[in-house]
Nucleic acid binder design. Sequence first.
DNA 1: ATAGGGTTAG
Length: 788
Amino acid sequence: MFSLVPTCKGRHVSKFLPSLRLCCQLFSVATNTLQFSSDGFANENKNDDIDLLFQSCTNVHHAKQLHAFLVVSGKVQNIFLSARLVNRYAYLGDVSFSRITFDLIPRKDVYTWNSMVSAYVRSGRFREAIDCFSQFLLTSGLRPDFYTFPPVLKACQNLVDGKKIHCQILKLGFVWDVFVAASLVHLYSRFGFVGVARRLFDEMPIRDVGSWNAMISGFCQNGNAADALDVLIEMRSEGVKMDRVTATSLLTACAQSGDILSGMLIHLYVIKHGLDFDLLICNALINMYSKFGSLGHARRIFDQMDIKDLVSWNSIIATYEQNDDPMTALGLFYSMQLLGIQPDFLTLVSLASILAQLSDAAKSRSVHGFILRRDFFVQDVVIGNAVVDMYAKLGAIYSASTVFEGLPIKDVISWNTLITGYAQNGLASEAIEVYRMMQEYKEIIPNHGTWVSILPAYTSVGALQQGMKIHGRVIKNCLDLDVFVGTCLIDMYAKCGRLDDALLLFSQVPRKSAIPWNAVISSHGVHGHGEKALKLFKDMLDEGVKPDHVTFVSLLSACSHSGLVDEGQLYFHMMQEQYRIKPSLKHYGCMVDLLGRAGHLNKAYSFIDNMPVRPDASVWGALLGACRIHGNVDLGRIASERLFEVDSENVGYYVLLSNIYANSGKWEGVEKVRSLARNRGLSKTPGWSSIEVNNNVDVFYTANQSHPKCQEIYQKLSDLTAKMKSLGYVPDFSFVLQDVEDDEKEHILNSHSERLAIAFGLISTPPKTPIRIFKNLRDGACSCGDYW
DNA sequence: ATAGGGTTAG
């Protein structure tokens, strides 16, 4: 027996009941009093009841009940009712049921087809919408009407498709319908064809706010806020008032282009016209203030909204997620759950990033599980990419790659995310391998994100020739003037020892933002050209570029590498007084390094004591490094004790301390530190040197024996040593930090990774070829992403 | 009964 009462579980019963009662009443109205015939309603004045019947289906479950009822009572034969089901299912977010219903309708009319096309458009399945429309034209033998075209135009994802549709519209003579014309205007402005959009707009016989909005929003979606604002001025001068749609589009565009002034003016307009409680406008405002970094404004708008929807929640959560406050973001997510609001895939995108920021591995895995259970991976690529990124940021690169493998849809960003993941986890050759695999997929077109992810990987192994190949491709794609790609290239040339080329590139990229400046200042600092770094900083100020916190990290570290103590202190004050930048732990670390390196160990120590924030491992590490340089065992011991209180996991610091002991011949200290590290399950990150010969990077570790040319390399080294000794070379054993005999020390010196790489370079290249050796574990070297 | 212009995103 067929039941009319839907089962209702959970906490919405009280909300649910009235509509359920209404639904039942209407079912009885439908069964008892409505007369159906094969071509429509006999009783015309009952249409209102039919509307109510459909509208009372507020979830897919209701719709299925009604559907079943229509099937059982045979009324599904009525194509109007079936088409309405198609619409209703789409409205409730289940297009697959729309399609099933649609397919079962035997004799489809234009309304049926229009309903199916718009069902696809409504749920964002544009490709299927276009396919359905083509099927309509080819198989139905029916003539589309002017209801058909607006959704179809919206579904066009490129101008070629759009132009085809435009031609069909011209042939059928629907151009002057207000809606069709507005859709065409929107199409052209969306793809940046300002002139065509303009001409069509000017030719429209009737224009309302909607027509203006079509043009303005098209420009906004094309990232063209300036043109959109020009059209706005024109629109207002013709006496047409901005409405909620105009405001929403423009706010979004201002957010994207960073136009704070216009954004706030529109906000004022919105308040003045009483639109400040409109849901969509508020959502757009939250988003805009979030992009401007004004968390307070975003939050105030959110708190004052009396009706909030899922977009509002997602927006406010993303606001905190993207402005480095993952704790607050997570708290908001919990409040949302308490209110019983179901998260969608965009909520989960933010949540993945939040948990990565909090490095909460356990919660991250449960987020992954949640996404799997809800089948969100098939909904959109974005969510898959977010999970890959989450695992990569947590250092679980194996999980990241497993998720990547299993993604049902992969786009170029998925690949970029995995490449970046490997590169940032220190696995450059894996990153390079992924990039190689990506090139086997013809449909994946690399974009600027690809270059930004692969260039640092090449840089980190010193693969200059490979990197230059990418530089070539970048030029071909006209992306060499992109700030981010350009900065990666500058960083690459600089790290590979070609500062001149780095500077040449720097002179070509747009440098209104601090990003390329940060890279070029840092590069000079790392290479010990402190004066030049200061000169570049001065140029930056002269060109009116505002330095940011990264600039000062680069600058302070440049000062410390060149012993410019006074200058460093001056800039540390300038940063706070003049630029109101609160020093971060990185800045404090630089200052300790600056003082310590120059030998002012006690000053450095008291500087740490006077810090207003709790020093972290990097600050103590800087002091420890300085103690090593100046052989101060006592302070070194103090620094390391404090250091291991805050971070006992980083091997680098154990190595430093053990080197301090070794330098002063305290071998029992060395042994103690080593066993401490061993007991904590830590092993030393091996140092390596690499050299690129014939487009191939060879990596050498100390005392490497596994290289195919091993024998020749050691032979070459011993020849060279003999030659050097005959010219008066005496090995300096102070760099050997092991307690062994002198001939063993000489062997250790001879098998340093740099020497192996040089010897390999000499035997593998023709005479007079420049040999460029690249080392990991470089002091003060940062990765490219640190510049922005 | 179906239609234009609008918010969140890796």
